[in-house]
Design a protein around this nucleic acid. Sequence first.
DNA 1: CTCGTTGTTGCATACGTATGTCTATAATAG
DNA 2: CTATTATAGACATACGTATGCAACAACGAG
Lengths: 331, 331
Amino acid sequence: MTVTSRDVAQLAGVSQPTVSRALRDDPRVSEATKERVRKAAERLGYVPSDAGRALSSGRTRRIGLLLTDLENQFYPHIIAPAFHQLESRGYQLMLHTEAADNDVVAERLISNGLDGVLLATSTIDSVVPLRLRDRGLPFVYFNRTSTAVQADSAVVDPAQGMGEAAQVLFDRGHRRVAAILGPANTSTAINREIALRDALAHHGISIPAHYVHRGPFDTATGHAGTERFLKMPEPPTAIVCGNDVVAFGALNAARSAGADVPGDVSIVGFDDLPSASWPIIRLTTIAYDLDAMVRRAADLLIERIESPGRPVEESAFQSRLVMRDTLGRTR
Amino acid sequence: MTVTSRDVAQLAGVSQPTVSRALRDDPRVSEATKERVRKAAERLGYVPSDAGRALSSGRTRRIGLLLTDLENQFYPHIIAPAFHQLESRGYQLMLHTEAADNDVVAERLISNGLDGVLLATSTIDSVVPLRLRDRGLPFVYFNRTSTAVQADSAVVDPAQGMGEAAQVLFDRGHRRVAAILGPANTSTAINREIALRDALAHHGISIPAHYVHRGPFDTATGHAGTERFLKMPEPPTAIVCGNDVVAFGALNAARSAGADVPGDVSIVGFDDLPSASWPIIRLTTIAYDLDAMVRRAADLLIERIESPGRPVEESAFQSRLVMRDTLGRTR
DNA sequence: CTCGTTGTTGCATACGTATGTCTATAATAG
DNA sequence: CTATTATAGACATACGTATGCAACAACGAG
């Protein structure tokens, strides 16, 4: 039924191993034979079997990307550059989502014969890194890290961006600043909260507990938090959001409540997604080079796979404030 | 190094085939033995190898999803439900993108040992369906179809939605209607154009050539088309867009040009993406059950895989207009 | 003329699982 | 008590490729 390397070998008058070598351009095969094999393969429409190759070589050239919440607007901007970077280096991407049961996820990652895994949504208490380490399956933390196991990572350093944001907030008269933060078990939420509080503290501003809202990094969280803040007798004059998607939710809630942005309340995001710069949105946000960060993570993983001995490399990407229209002067 | 079914067999005191059968709950193995095998597998941390399984059984339980332009806001809404529907039926999703060279794509799809492929962005002249058919690799058209090869499909029927849109446009006084359409070699662009022109013709409205703009289904196309239209001495009073992403581009262009929507120009989308209903957007658009359509495509593909003889099934999903704030009365 | 060398190919086998066939044991009927 | 059948497991083998090693030819050097 399907045409195998044996069929090609027969047609070309060589042995099966020679076909295998010829088609992968092994220097041990003469140019004349290679040409003959290529012709035969072409004529038969031979396509090598990934399964056979994987079983024999122990490698699949497949890399897993572990995410939660595929629908979130943030993830396409990870998937696309990851996909292309891996492709350019001869690897393929396989999506996985983190269900409730971490052990099942880890098992699936392992059974799939992946060469490595990009962990893009690890919680700090996830068991997945442990399981992967135990199996000797290489992985890299992207965006979020976990403390349980050390590994290569590519993350944002929020300090600079939050510093600039705090400065502008202070300069424009904001003293009542609220925050809508991510889940407490994510490193991103923790780091951004620390960076924000530190930066504001520099200007003598602190965020009281009732000005803090926590939840998943989605629009619903931004919506709920903002709705709550705006109903307060003394609402905040500015809301700093855990990321842009949360900020979009905040913008929606403000609009629904009839509150003017930035007249009544200023909103700051984090990520600078492409849609943040749309004329109908123009979100003030903290930017960093997400594409480069993704490519970095992919490269780190591939290097880890191809030369396992290397020391762990933690790479942080700088952030900066991008002023647009949702952060203004208090009135 | 890695623990295999043979190791489990040895520990459990049975043969390797018995392990294979026991763990897949084959009725030919007694309950007592199954239990013993499961215990042994558990103790060793055994995880079956996908490659071995694929090679032996000839099936991978992996399905490819072929897309272009991963970054486009439309695709996450395909990827997510496809992923989950396939998962619930025991299959895994593998992303593929259509590069320039179609033959390379087809080859990759084949070599990956996929059990089937979801074609989500076929152009009507693509060679991919031909190649897949020649290989006997099952596939299903999703959203777009191709005429070259017949196959199961799940698509939108735009007639109803466009009919309702035309009615409302007419009622609200619109006579100068423009369209920003997708690429001429996509079935979606063609079908929507026909449906739109038919519906408008019912009310004696036709779209002149200079009111038509074509391009990829992205924001840039919507932006460019709208910019062009608004500069005309006699601009259209309404713009119907090929999909929501294009419409977002149109909204942006209108905002940039200082044109009020819907005061100066009305804008209609197609797809009803989640963000179309955001309070800060409130796009009038044509909706259909995208999730159901994706699930349908996945189901069709799985059925095609599991019972190949079945007659081809073409399933069309109804559309309807969703009125929001971007379609208003002419002034 | 012989021996080592280099370059090219074939041979044997491994990778891990699934499945068809065969056998041993136990259960059942006559 | 023997013949028949059901049951549970073992045995052998297939899937398609990659790779270590042996073999072989051609060639040049001594």
